[in-house]
Simulated assay, not measured.
Amino acid sequence: MSTSSRPGRLPVIDLLRGLALLAMALYHFSWDLKFFGFVDWDLVGGAGWIAARYLIAGSFLALVGLGLELWHVQGRDWRRWAVRLNKVVFGAIAVTVATWFMIPDEFIFFGILHCIAVASILGLLFLRLRPIVTLVLGLSVIALPILWRSTLFDHAWLLWTGLGTLPPRSNDYEPLFPWFGPVLLGLALGRWWLRAGASGGLVAGGALGRPLRWTGRHSLAFYLLHQPVLIGILLLVGMALGRDPRAMLSPPPDPTPMLIDCQVQCEQQGGGMEQCHAYCGCMVDGVQAQSLWPALRPDATAELKGRLRDLAAVCSR
């Protein structure tokens, strides 16, 4: 594919992006069903759900790398790159602001759009490397947080790196390590594929692929709008079943994140696994029974914090 031919979009990339968006929407729909109490699936600890999350997010980011290589091969239209980057940055800011007001305890400060924006800039540094080097670097980025982490990166301003020891509470957390790794893998694989002639690039999926390709061409809009649409549908279904929409939007908090955070911090402070399991189970049960969820907020009153300390003293016995 010569740099002067500028063939435009490859249908197969839009098709793959559309498939990834469909998988993402189904995954988010599962979370919405649980949030509104329609199902009781183990979305946090279930092996299948964990694998689905990693595969879906990884496919998106690999396609970012593939798209960056396609842009590079086609002559590097900087205006097109800047326009796309500005849209992603705007979308990321919109997600952060919206979740800050809706779920301040778990707002999205570095989700997949934030990661895509940063990766779109950092990826420029790797465009001229040999694909085998990029491939090795991508695998290294994925492996680093598995092999090494440090408390130096637990500071709030460094959580975006993904190299800290404490998992932050966020509804969508895709830090640079390991998630820049799939971008580099997509960049390397895209270089091998595109510079070999992009065989299969015109695969479009026929009539069934048409709506997927259309979705892939409007991926950012789909990402920003799909959750409000899904939530609206489930609210209507709940109302049809006689449920109060206000109660649906304010369900009891999910104790799972608190249990995981408590277990991790307890073991890091030297507690045994069984001891920490008993302590954290007691804390979660007590918080639920006494409706102490507001005490976990940073702006909790002194009275609520005192009640939480009293509960911790009881659970420590």
Rank of each mutant, 00 (worst) to 15 (best):
L19I: 07
A20G: 12
A25M: 15
L26C: 11
Y27N: 04
F29Q: 06
F29E: 06
F29I: 04
D32N: 03
L33E: 06
L33S: 04
L33W: 05
K34C: 02
F35E: 04
F35V: 05
F36T: 05
G37E: 12
G37W: 14
F38P: 08
F38K: 09
V39F: 14
D40Q: 13
D42W: 12
D42C: 01
L43Q: 02
V44E: 10
G45S: 03
G45F: 08
G46W: 12
A47T: 05
G48F: 03
I50L: 14
A52N: 01
Y54R: 08
L55Y: 05
G58T: 12
S59M: 05
S59H: 07
S59N: 07
L61W: 09
L63P: 01
L63T: 09
G65L: 02
L66C: 03
L70Q: 06
W71F: 11
H72D: 02
H72Y: 13
V73D: 07
V73M: 08
Q74S: 05
G75E: 08
R76K: 12
R76Q: 03
W78F: 11
W78S: 00
R79D: 11
R80K: 09
R80M: 04
W81Q: 13
V83K: 02
N86M: 15
V88A: 11
V89Q: 05
G91S: 14
A92E: 11
I93E: 06
A94Y: 12
V95G: 06
V97D: 03
A98C: 06
A98R: 06
A98F: 10
M102S: 13
P104C: 13
P104F: 08
E106R: 14
E106T: 14
I108Q: 02
I108F: 09
F109N: 07
F110E: 00
F110C: 02
F110S: 05
